[in-house]
Amino acid sequence: MKIAVLSGKGGAGKTMVAVNLAAAAKRAVYIDCDVEEPNGRLFWKPAEVRRTQVGVAVPEFDPALCTGCRRCVDFCRFNALVYIRETPRVFPEVCHSCGGCALVCPNGAVREKSRPIGVLEQGRSGDVTVITGELSPGEASGVPLIREALRADTGSSLTVIDCPPGSACPVMESAEAADYCILVAEPTAFGLHNVKMVHELAVILGKPCGVIINKQEKAYEPLELFCRENGLEILARIGYDAEFARLIARGEILYHADRRAAALFDGVLKRAGGGRE
């Protein structure tokens, strides 16, 4: 089973939930798809780490073969190519790696080469395989790296996908592979707005989902109502807790360090349908 952990905003508790869920499963694969700021590994402290470079294809032109027909320039719907002073030229950050330019070139003047965009890190933490996508600073899109991270899934009874915040393309890419989505929400007006966005995405993707309300001091009625009206099971409510905060700040995994947390995440895992093997 694959569970994606989503939230419309950063700092809601996605990584905390995802890490502890994987810890609860004992044997699991944890994939950090929050490639712009992957921090799950701070908790896992994985060993036997392998790092591999991930790149995207960009065109390269052979001036000897190019006749200046401009078919590639005309074909590129992203306008990543120009033809200036009898020289074709690519703007790599505009290129979407579709490969169309190489296909339409009648003279075989376009070859694709790899442009590095980040690193895929794979390691182990006990019985948990820890996969982390790490996007290079300044890169516009993490989607190709997320795709690679998900492809690196070694397969286990449970895969936990720690999604990036929001509900845009990188989140779509991350959640698409999941069987179930956990939406982490804060009990505030802002939190409700954010959970609505990710819920809408989960519905479009056809994923069943449940909610974890984090940082709850008292119930926020509009959020409760939203969950009821949309048939969303509340998998857990996590209050402000000085001990939890202390452990997290120290980079410890709550599940391993605190009995109450262990009971809580065992419950979440069971309700989400990802019981032990």
């Binding site: 992203f78 306008n79 990543a80 120009v82 033809y83 703007f91 505009v94």
Partner: peptide, 9 residues
Amino acid sequence: GGAGLKAAQ
């Protein structure tokens, strides 16, 4: 997208 590039072309 890439309007500036196409316009410059």
